[in-house]
Amino acid sequence: MNERRTTWLLVLVLAVQLLLLAAQVRSEGGATLLEQTALRLVGPVGRLVAGFFGSAEDVGRSLRSRGELQAENRQLQGRIETLELELFRLRNVEEERERLAEALEYTPQVPGRLRPTQVVYLDHSSWLRTLILYVGRRTVRQDEPVITPAGLVGRVILTAGSYAKVQLITDRAAAASAVIERTRRQALVRGGNDGLELDFVPLQASVEPGDRVLTAGTDGIYPRGIPIGTVVKVGQGDELFRDVLVTPAVDFAMLDRVYLLERETVPDELKENEAGARP
């Protein structure tokens, strides 16, 4: 073998060994250096593309007619008034809850702080089901819930520099403890091929299309009360449980901005099982 080929062989061998080393190194969050490096490489490109299309949309919006803008403005004003009324009502409810909690000496779980975050890459339809967020210099924890006003999106599974990777709730490896709002029946929601599947709903339990499914808050990751989806189909299933199909509350095709929910989670040493497998 001549020297040039040997040199190329050397380069190849060294490259393979670097990959081998990278594949072994895991950060505190459990992600390999390879995964982190890939996220650091993909993130800026995704942000560039998202920024380009965002700018194109802005240009498109600015070209609309005056009449269209006025109509949209009126619509948005009406929505703001509705939301303000709702906010006023919810503040009263919150105050009443605090008064009752104080009277009963009950310590409610602090809901957490919401941080808006930009979506730079989303692949919700292929088997990958990947969402990448640009979080900037802020510290993001693993397993931090990601939500929108519509409902649950998923949880952070990997952080690298200014980017975070999110496991969508529709991912086949994702799961969350859930509760049917109407009956308070607890179950487990998992990602499936055609949306979400609600597992461990007994045959004798009452569940019907149209029932809202919320997070139960018992898996140590997602707090209670976040909308997950709506039941669309109830089947017989096996001898013990029903087949329940749930359509997600979030329209993943329209995701633009999401919110990271900062909250105090259950310490790892107290958890027995974690809902949601690692990818």
Partner: peptide
């Protein structure tokens, strides 16, 4: 050069098996 490269790789990986650190450091 090929022999030097190959022997270095093999011996290094063998040494990595004893070291308890990341496998492949000495191999590299």
């Amino acid at each position: 050069s090929l022999s030097g490269l190959s022997v270095g790789l093999g011996v290094g990986l063998l040494q990595d098996g004893l070291s308890g650190r990341l496998y492949g450091l000495h191999g590299f």
